[in-house]
Design a protein around this nucleic acid. Structure first.
Lengths: 265, 265
DNA sequence: CGTACGTTTGATCTTTCTCAATAATGGTGG
DNA sequence: CCACCATTATTGAGAAAGATCAAACGTACG
């Protein structure tokens, strides 16, 4: 019933057991806001509990009031909402290093669900520890605030994507975002990606049906914009895919470093 | 070319010239987070410049780096993004009292546009003044963060609305949100609303076309869910409209006060 | 090896879009 | 106050994108 095969996501070399799990969080924060050594140490000092999660398991449920904040260490998660008649819409996908419920540091009840896309691990940090850190370290506070805020532009871009692009652009855009974000965080530097997502989930992310997604995917492939081999994809013509997807990464608010996405662009 | 007729939005009784403009901001902040008298005074002490804006004028442009933060005093604004081929998608509508570019306190470049829906007024606060206030008043800081963060759920709900509801529900949902938010802030307590939006704009907000919006509106009207008289609408059967729109206000994160939306629900 | 899940394909149907024309409105200038 | 103009609303007919239904095919895991 539940997939138990090889580890998914995060090249082993980048995600070895001996690395401190919160290192990934630091890397993520730093894609949006610079941190000092001191800040990094403070973050590494946070208490946390490591936890394995199966695919489909929830980390946050609509209506819940979490008392801890999970940081994704390996695997992928997705945020979604469900309509009254059961249709589901993804509103973003989370990659390793991202905090899954930071907004609940400030808001009361969760207004959406977060669920594991694949199986993986999280580091659970007690909210009070996080709050204390944020109070005592203004720079970390700022970084946390920025990394929380920086998801809103993704929701906005998704609204645009779903509302105003046709199915081909829509899917291309999603692929671009996914690839770009992984590269931005230094994950998956090889140029091909294990797409951790079924076509049905891809449909839920784009507001389409699984059947249609399948046809569009085939179309992109026959156009030479996409190579698929099982769940591993690569983009033979990144430039054109980006055009088709009408993809402009500005909304991701990545800090401009000396090391731009190497394998892309 | 540009509308110059009577003032739009905000019953005069609620928005008299003699009222301090930032009072509206305070009211908005308090719908999400409690403020003390001290906090309120601190906010009222902010420097600001009052400014009239015509309909369609921009207050924030994608790519810009604003050095001031505009608070809407009267009239409505909308956030939107545009695709490469010119299609437009609204991602939220702002009502009086709301700050239009708080996120730029934390992020570099704006990733979307904010434009006036109607003509109206804003109070422009220099960013540095806002930053100082936020540094010296932790409770105000918290309130500002909450009110910034509280827009993200709206984007998520819109993504769901656009991606997974049919045109009828979609429009009903938008109407519900608009009515609910106004009521929540104590604006428009009379039960009917001046909808400050053309059908074309309604289309851009819902990911539909103007023609289709027109037909759906007629449908809702013939079902007895909507009364239209010019731009003034009322909802003869709020309960049913809410059902049709699959509207659950949880995502608006309104504080629970002793005064729930009086004229609604 | 079989079962459950995911993918692929075909045929048909529906919603929504497009194009185009007409009718109202509200604001403007005279 | 009235006539004119630009914008917005309304309507119809036809087209298209994407949904739905149903079936067959793969493949991974147990």
């Amino acid at each position: 019933m539940i997939s138990r095969s090889r580890p998914i996501c995060g090249r082993d070399s980048l995600n070895t057991p001996e690395q401190h799990p919160l290192q990934l969080l630091i890397r993520k924060l730093e894609t949006h806001y610079p941190l000092s050594d001191h800040d990094r140490q403070a973050i590494l000092g946070l208490p946390y509990k490591r936890r394995h999660l199966e695919a489909q398991s929830y980390t946050v449920r609509e209506g819940a009031r979490p008392d801890r904040c999970a940081v994704l260490i390996s695997g992928y998660a997705f945020r979604h909402k469900v309509t009254g008649n059961g249709d589901r819409q993804f509103v973003s996908i989370n990659t390793p290093g991202e905090a899954l419920d930071l907004q609940n540091l400030f808001l009361d009840e969760s207004d959406h669900n977060v669920q594991m896309l694949t199986r993986g691990e999280v580091a659970e940090i007690p909210q009070h520890a996080l709050e204390e850190l944020v109070l005592s370290e203004p720079n970390v506070s700022r970084a946390v605030m920025v990394s929380t805020l920086v998801e809103a532009p993704i929701f906005r871009e998704w609204a645009l994507n779903i509302g105003r692009r046709d199915s081909r652009s829509r899917i291309a855009h999603l692929l671009c975002e996914f690839a770009y974000r992984l590269t931005m965080q230094g994950l998956e530097p090889s140029g091909d990606f294990e797409l951790p997502i079924t076509q049905e989930q891809l449909a839920d992310a784009t507001g389409l049906t699984a059947v249609h997604v399948n046809r569009v995917l085939k179309g992109l492939q026959s156009e030479g914009l996409l190579d698929r081999n099982r769940r591993v994809v690569s983009f033979p013509d990144w430039h054109r895919l980006r055009e088709v997807g009408d993809f402009n990464p500005r909304y991701l608010h990545a800090i401009h470093t000396s090391e731009p996405a190497r394998t892309l662009s």
